[in-house]
Amino acid sequence: MFGEFDTSVIFDNLHFLLEGMQTTLILTVIAICGGLVLGTLLALARLAPFKPLSFIAGSYVNFFRSMPLILVIFWFYFLVPHIVGRPVGGFYSVLVAFVMFEAAYYCEIMRAGIQSVRKGQIYAGQALGLTYTQNMRYVVLPQAFRNMVPILMTQAIILFQDTSLVYVVGVKDFLVSADLVANRENRILEMFTTVALVYFVICLSGSLLVRRLQRKFAQ
């Protein structure tokens, strides 16, 4: 019970745990950036007037959205070395998996965001003689991004939590580091409680921030 809750194990291994957290954060940030870029391209493809293009983008999104993230991680952990032709290590496989997977979700958010821009704006852009690309770049996307900021941030928090799934292929993120310490020092109770608390504090601060932003945008 909590009577023998030993906090020293946390401080003794602090450096190791922080390294794990660093991996978690790097993974999150790269997955967000990659996912955003690929997701935006997908969303543009999905809304493009050229039918085959929007069909392909739509299939991509539906495909990834009907698969569990763990299965996607296993897929890429198995596939990436085959495609590259040499072992690349868990981290890079997982990174590819996250970017591809998140892109499907970001695409849907983007699409909703782009569709939330009023039609009149697009017509106005066209009337001014802007090309399709210019219209997207200067008129539609800046407004769409603004509408999407809260949802994008919520998705980032979800992604931050989801990175813990790299556990299944043993990439040393925050959770796996804590798990290693827990088993080595036989301190399962302390380590997992700490991990839960750390995630909780980070994610709760994140969602409170999102709520404040939402209120600000709603004004």
Binding site: M1, F2, Q161, D162, S164, L165, Y167, L175, D179, I188, L189, F192, T193, V195, A196, Y199, F200, C203, L204, S207
Partner: peptide, 23 residues
């Protein structure tokens, strides 16, 4: 809602499986 939403599902899984019986 805030508690369950802000802890990764995998961590919750471990909490229930490894930590809960100890408590």
């Amino acid at each position: 809602v805030e508690t369950f939403r802000n802890i990764p599902l995998l961590v919750q899984m471990f909490l229930w499986y490894f930590v809960f019986p100890e408590l």
